[in-house]
């Protein structure tokens, strides 16, 4: 089944080991005093994508997809040989289309110019011509090898912990791959065996997932594993959840005893 992760290009072509990721930055490394700066750049660019995405009122998942596209693009290109700012704009533009929430190219150009030109960044060179962004989009899609599907941990999180009426926006959006698809018997996604998390804990797990995009994790681990790790961290860091687990005395085993499985 190709709507599943294991059959996807995400799994087959876009998961790397750390050595390969390091190798991709070889050229950039020559220009920094401390290799750690490269990681800082990664954080900086991820924040910019998130800012631009919010200005374009993109949903969190589309922003995550834009970030994944950005990181995939820089598996084949060097920061020092490209203009990351136009790449960022192109990533947002393509991700918005790929996630069925298209924004007009003119808006992307306008918002990107405004954002990048402010005092914090001082980038005044962003082209005002739509066609430059369209051109960059073409190179981007080429280097992405037309693989426009990215899987995200949000879906696993909401499948395991989601609740009706939760304030965390977890509605599977129209256009999401395989949303509502059920292949054969399974109980996840059926509403059975959900992990009962407090609303604020769910929120925390969601934010932890947002933060993972500031690193290379999305190139290294499958999304469901990232989601599980985020849930685990939440059980540790979310105070009242942690307290209630402790008082239930299940802590000595594993927080996952909190999973109330009811296999159907």
């Amino acid at each position: 089944m190709a709507t599943d992760y294991w059959a996807s290009s995400h799994y087959k072509r876009w998961i790397f080991d750390r050595a390969t990721i390091k190798q991709a930055r070889a050229l950039d490394l020559q220009y920094v005093e401390d290799p750690e700066y490269i990681d800082f750049l990664g954080i900086f660019f991820a924040n910019l994508i998130s800012k631009l995405g919010k200005k374009l009122s993109m949903r969190q998942r589309a922003i995550a997809t834009a970030t994944v596209f950005f990181r995939r693009f820089y598996m084949k290109n060097a920061y020092c040989e490209t203009d990351p700012f136009i790449v960022i704009a192109a990533c947002c533009y393509v991700a918005a289309k790929a996630e069925e929430f298209p924004v007009h190219i003119k808006n992307v150009v306008t918002e990107a110019r405004l954002l990048f030109a402010n005092d914090e960044y001082g980038i005044k060179s962003f082209p005002s011509d739509n066609s430059k962004l369209a051109e960059m989009e073409f190179y981007l899609v080429d280097d992405l090898e037309c693989d426009l599907i990215a899987f995200h941990p949000y879906r696993t999180l909401m499948t395991l912990c989601g609740r009706e009426g939760s304030s965390v926006s977890h509605d599977t959006e129209a256009g999401e791959l395989g949303a509502g698809v059920q292949d054969g018997p399974r109980y996840w996604g059926t509403g059975e065996g959900k992990l009962e998390l407090q609303e604020s804990a769910l929120q925390m797990a969601w934010f932890i997932i947002n933060d993972t995009y500031r690193s290379d994790l999305c190139l290294i681990y499958p999304p469901h594993l990232i989601a599980i790790a985020a849930i685990y961290l939440t059980l540790v860091f979310h105070e009242s959840t942690h307290e209630s687990l402790k008082s239930a005395q299940s802590w000595q085993y594993t927080p996952f005893l909190a999973l109330k499985f009811k296999p159907s």
Binding site: V94, N130, A134, L148
Partner: peptide, 23 residues
């Protein structure tokens, strides 16, 4: 592509995404 002022047509993108996930 040349006729598309808005770059990559969203319909094409949709078709690619769909077909890549169907077999």
């Amino acid at each position: 592509m040349e006729a598309e002022r808005d770059g990559f047509p969203v319909t094409a993108m949709r078709e690619i995404k769909l077909l890549q996930s169907l077999r």
